[in-house]
Amino acid sequence: MGRILIVDDEQRMLQLMKLYLTPHGHTCHLVDSAEKALELVRTVPIDLALLDVMMPEMDGWILCQKIRQSADFPIIMLTARNQKDDILRGHEVGADDYVAKPIHEGELLARIELLIGRVKNESETFQGLYYDPASYQCTFDQKKNC
């Protein structure tokens, strides 16, 4: 299914997300800081990211903005406050969706699958040439070309 990046400073939350997502066939990349997340984004193809808002040093908003400078995969913010300000801010920094804590397993999965599905539909294949809009990558016969 999807390769999902999960960023949260709390190990317990990362484990919980992993427990939620792996049974549904998602591959989880667990990262406990924004810096490590940015590094990972550069090297590993990602289909979707779950970012915690409250993190030390660099918070989820800034991380979201930085990821948006180089990548276009869907981003879901994990926030403890479902206030309008937060939703608006999420749109400003380029987040696609948000999930408020306490997280509802079914809702989280539904939102993830909706966003991954939409992006997958936008990807195109033409005579063996495959364009992945999430990573701006073109592959020809499964080999990276441009």
């Binding site: 709390e10 939350m13 919980l16 427990l19 403890a80 406050r81 804590k101 306490p102 997280i103």
Partner: peptide, 9 residues
Amino acid sequence: RTPLTYVKG
């Protein structure tokens, strides 16, 4: 909400 997420999760 954070501890609640864990309890529920």
